[in-house]
């Protein structure tokens, strides 16, 4: 999701960046997301709402209250975060329902749900809100998965998830599975720390066209054993990673599916439809050694 940096946001509201930051401290609004580098990124809808509200009231706190209640934009990550902060699951439901009226499921996940979870997680001392947000988001993603039509492709994808319990990477993985299913693939999501023999049984049942390492917490040893298991079972399907899940830096033979669910589903479709999967398989047969390290 694109955001507006502090200076531009301040200019849009006709205030100094310091004033904008002071409102955030005092009123917790507008509430920017943070980039990986810690920079604030404001939502245009929130800024527009506040700009309008400032002309409808005689003081700043009332304007902020008006903008917050109005919750401008069809829906936003900030509104969803507000709902979590109030422990109001009904409000959270409404935010995403409103979003679905104007956005696709994929865009709702990427522009509202996942950013809201990251906003909640970024704050100190909000463990209760974080747990509610994570559980609620998990439920929402599961419910959405159940409404996906039957697979339109014969290809299966096995997702091997190394995320930790209830962190935002875990929700990214669930969102990835939803996007892959919505793209017409069969999918199975398994924890990457399952014993190899159990993964092997699942592989025989699913006969995956591709494997995806995801979740961000796998060790090199674990990945090595999984690749070994995959090849031992006789599968020649290529292995991908999602959101930099490979615990190595520099070159490796595992292509990335990107950092967002939609991007990953699109890349997977492109690989399959262009017949490039076979090329990757050929490459990985020679390079699997590079990630199969001894324990």
């Amino acid at each position: 999701m694109s955001g507006i940096r502090t200076n531009a946001a301040a200019e849009l509201l006709g205030v100094s960046p310091n004033t904008l930051r002071s409102w955030e401290r005092r009123f917790d609004y507008p509430r920017p997301r943070r980039t990986a580098g810690g920079h604030r990124q404001y939502e245009l809808a929130e800024l527009e709402a506040l700009r309008r509200a400032l002309y409808e009231t005689h003081n700043i706190s009332s304007a902020i209250e008006v903008a917050r209640q109005r919750g401008e934009g069809p829906s936003s990550a900030s509104r969803l975060t507000d709902a979590f902060d109030r422990f109001d699951e009904g409000a959270a439901d409404r935010v995403l329902e409103e979003s679905l009226a104007v956005r696709s499921v994929d865009r709702t996940v990427e522009e509202v749900l996942l950013p809201a979870i990251e906003m909640v997680e970024a704050r100190e001392g909000r463990e209760a809100e974080q747990e509610l947000a994570s559980r609620w988001a998990t439920g929402w993603l599961h419910a959405s998965r159940r409404t996906v039509p039957a697979p339109s492709r014969t290809h299966g994808v096995l997702l091997l998830d190394s995320s930790q319990r209830r962190d935002h990477e875990s929700l990214h993985v669930q969102a990835l599975e939803l996007a892959i299913r919505r793209a017409g693939f069969r999918s199975l999501l398994l924890s990457s720390d399952l014993p190899p023999e159990r993964v092997a049984r699942a592989m025989r049942a699913v006969d995956p066209t591709a494997f995806v390492f995801c979740g961000g917490h796998a060790t090199l040893d674990l990945l090595g054993r999984l690749v070994y298991t995959i090849r031992q079972v006789g599968s020649a399907a290529p292995v991908f990673e999602y959101r930099e899940s490979m615990p190595v830096t520099g070159d490796h033979s595992i292509p990335s599916l990107g950092a967002t669910p939609t991007e990953a589903a699109e890349r997977l479709k492109a690989y399959v439809d262009s017949g490039r999967l076979e090329q990757i398989v050929a490459t990985q047969r020679f390079q699997d050694e590079s990630i199969r390290l001894p324990a």
Binding site: G14, V15, N18, T19, H58
Partner: peptide, 25 residues
């Protein structure tokens, strides 16, 4: 300014540049 009372010439500004705490009326 609705907070500090500082005078401000007409402009597109809505927030007081002097104190940052009030709206300009």
């Amino acid at each position: 300014c609705s907070r500090c009372g500082a005078p401000e010439p007409p402009s597109q500004r809505r927030i007081c540049p002097a104190c940052g705490k009030g709206v300009l009326l």
